[in-house]
Design a protein around this nucleic acid. Sequence first.
DNA 1: CGTTTGACTACGC
DNA 2: CGCGTAGCCAAAC
Length: 151
Amino acid sequence: MFELSDPEAFNRIVWEIVRQVPEGQVTTFGQIAGMIPAPEGIEPEVYQRLGPRWVGDAMNAVSWKDDKTVPWHRVINSKGTISLPPETQAAALQRARLRHEGIEFNSREQVDFDQWGWEGPEPDWCAEMGLTMPKSLRSRPAKGPQQLSFF
DNA sequence: CGTTTGACTACGC
DNA sequence: CGCGTAGCCAAAC
């Protein structure tokens, strides 16, 4: 699959997965990491926390000037929000692209996973790639605060 | 070569 | 609910 000593291989898998995310849907760093088996030597519970971070690194490695093949904007964090630093041009671009695809944000800048969460690629594609089907983002509350405060 | 920083998350308080 | 923290982290300083 990939060597722990070869981060580029990990990145390539991540990019390939992100390419499968259809327009108008979002996935999370954790959901993608969960599809990729833990590298040899990494305990599953450790990978559970490190994997998403590596996925973030893989996204960071995608130059947003050369993003024709990797729809990086469809990857957000488990809270349902954009992870790029707010008030940056990149974050604004990501938000604009998602809005353009029909995705909406609530007053806390969160996307509703029940409505726009990705259900993963076709099972046979996963098998072909040696990946596991991701956990559904739907039918479960997004992490972090959801309730809208009145003031 | 020691420190800092970071597109993350689960968990403990 | 919100904040802090650690993770055989890994590039960038």
